[in-house]
Simulated scan of single mutants.
Amino acid sequence: MKKVIVIGATGKIGKILSEKLSDEADFEIKAAFRNEDKKDFFEDRNIEFTILNLEDPVDKIAEAIEGADVVVFTAGSGGSTGPDKTLVVDLDGAVKSMEAAKKANVNRYVIVSAMKADNREMWDKSGIKPYYVAKHYADRVLKDIGLDYTIIRPGRLLDEDGTGKITTENPEKNKSVPREDVAAVIVEVLKNDNTIGKIVEFNQGDKEISEAIGNI
């Protein structure tokens, strides 16, 4: 059984992922989040949780994730904060969690990034350039830090029911994907070691998620 710690578990993807993993016999889930006031969601579902602030020192973050087999980073500063928090959470917070994973001997690390995070020409047009900059450089650090990584890059995120189907072969054909399907992709990534060292770009499509990820 793999012990998975989900950082940013109170976010939209984090909540869905936590529920999905809690229903999987092969995974033991621990939710990690900053605001203790949001613990009821996890207590109601008997999901283990820990309080983790990404602005804390690396050593303290390492203590929170010690004993896990996998770190999944779904945290983000959110659309209501400014570029300063994007820098602190989406970039430095992500990198600190990678350093903490190394310190705690947690070798498997999965991060939720964004499609076109490497396309600088698109950043200015996006209207959320600091977000893409943060994702780009967090991904670059992850590729070089020595963890068994997978970088998840969905397109525009939707708050609607998942279809259970995606495309990875031509993801820019469609522009969006439900968050529920992003969470399902992460579950399949955790089941498939063939995704280690890979960037998985996807949007909604016509192939079953298990098949699409199994053939990465």
Rank of each mutant, 00 (worst) to 15 (best):
A75S: 11
E48Q: 07
S80Y: 11
A31T: 10
G197E: 03
N192D: 14
S126R: 10
A9D: 04
E43T: 15
I196C: 03
E208T: 05
Y137D: 10
I196V: 15
A114K: 02
G205Y: 02
E63G: 00
N46E: 15
S77L: 13
A134S: 10
I7G: 07
E188Y: 03
I209S: 04
E172K: 03
L147S: 02
K173S: 14
K39Q: 14
M115Y: 12
T167A: 06
I29C: 12
I166L: 07
V4I: 15
K135W: 02
V200K: 04
P178Q: 00
V182Q: 05
I166F: 02
V112N: 04
N203S: 15
A62V: 08
I151Y: 08
D206K: 13
Y131L: 09
S80V: 13
V6C: 06
G162Y: 05
N170E: 14
K165W: 01
V200Y: 00
S18M: 02
I213A: 00
V200P: 01
V189D: 03
V200W: 04
L142P: 01
A64Y: 07
E28I: 00
E19Y: 02
A104P: 10
R140P: 08
G155S: 05
A62R: 02
E36W: 08
E169V: 10
T163R: 05
T10K: 01
R108V: 12
A100Y: 03
Q204N: 10
T81L: 13
F33M: 05
E43S: 14
E36S: 14
V141P: 02
L157Q: 04
D44C: 04
I5Q: 07
A184P: 01
T168W: 05
F33L: 11
G127W: 11
F33W: 07
E208P: 04
Y149S: 05
V112I: 14
D40G: 03
I7K: 02
V6D: 05
A184Q: 08
V106C: 11
A25Y: 07
S210L: 06
L17Q: 03
P154K: 03
A100D: 05
D23T: 13
S113N: 11
G127T: 09
G79T: 06
D181V: 05
I209W: 09
K125I: 13
V89T: 14
I111K: 08
N192W: 09
G146K: 01
N215T: 15
V185Y: 00
I145R: 01
L157T: 01
T86K: 04
K2T: 12
L158Q: 00
I7M: 07
A134C: 07
A138S: 15
S176A: 15
A138E: 12
K38P: 12
G93A: 06
K129D: 12
A117W: 03
N107A: 14
V185R: 06
V185F: 08
N119G: 08
F73D: 10
M115N: 07
L147K: 00
